[in-house]
Computed example of a mutant assay.
Amino acid sequence: MDYEFGMLAWSMAGHDKDKLYVIIKTEGEYVYLSDGRLKPVERPKKKKWKHIQVRKTIPEELCSLTEETIKNEEIRKVIRRFSNV
C-alpha cells in the first residue's frame, strides 16, 4: 500500500482506536502519525500500516508542506476540520 506524507489516517486498533492522525513519515511496514497534541511532530506515534485506515487524498493545507516544515498547529487545524465530517 502506498502511504504518503500528509494523508489522514484513522487508527483501527489499540487504545487510540478511531482517532484521526496525519501521516508524517513511512518506514517499511510502519507509519509515523501525529495529531499535533498528544503525539506532536517531534514525537510521532509509530504504528503498523495494517492497523490504520487511510484517506487517499491529502488535504490542500498540507500539500505544500514537508516533514521538516509542518507544524503542530497545522495538523490540529486539519484534524479539527475532518473530525467533524
Rank of each mutant, 00 (worst) to 15 (best):
M1I: 14
M1L: 11
D2I: 04
D2T: 04
D2A: 04
Y3A: 03
E4Y: 10
E4P: 00
E4A: 08
M7K: 11
L8C: 01
A9M: 05
W10V: 06
W10L: 12
W10S: 09
W10F: 14
W10M: 11
S11F: 00
A13F: 07
A13W: 05
G14L: 06
G14C: 00
H15L: 15
D16K: 11
D16S: 11
K17R: 15
K17F: 11
K17E: 13
D18W: 13
D18M: 07
D18T: 07
K19A: 14
L20V: 01
L20N: 02
L20P: 02
V22C: 11
I24R: 11
I24N: 14
I24A: 05
I24H: 13
T26A: 05
T26H: 06
T26Y: 05
E27S: 14
E29S: 05
Y30Q: 04
Y30N: 10
V31R: 02
V31L: 06
Y32G: 00
Y32W: 13
Y32N: 04
Y32D: 04
L33S: 00
S34E: 13
D35T: 11
D35W: 13
D35H: 10
G36V: 10
G36T: 11
R37S: 15
L38T: 10
L38H: 07
L38Y: 12
K39R: 13
K39H: 15
P40G: 07
P40E: 06
V41F: 03
V41A: 07
V41Y: 02
E42I: 09
R43H: 12
R43G: 07
R43M: 08
P44A: 01
K46Q: 12
K47P: 04
W49V: 12
W49G: 06
W49T: 08
K50M: 07
H51T: 02
I52Y: 03
I52T: 09
I52M: 03
I52P: 10
Q53G: 04
V54K: 08
R55Y: 13
R55M: 10
R55P: 01
K56Q: 09
T57M: 12
T57Y: 13
E60F: 13
E60Q: 14
E60I: 15
E61P: 02
L62W: 13
L62D: 09
L62E: 09
C63A: 05
C63D: 11
C63K: 15
S64K: 12
S64L: 06
L65M: 14
T66D: 01
T66G: 12
T66H: 07
E67N: 01
E68K: 15
E68Q: 13
K71S: 02
K71R: 14
K71A: 10
K71H: 05
K71V: 03
N72E: 12
N72D: 15
N72Q: 10
E73N: 03
E74N: 09
E74H: 14
I75T: 07
R76K: 08
R76W: 00
K77R: 14
I79V: 12
I79K: 13
R80Y: 09
R80D: 11
R80T: 08
F82P: 04
F82L: 01
F82G: 07
F82C: 01
N84T: 15
N84D: 11
V85L: 14
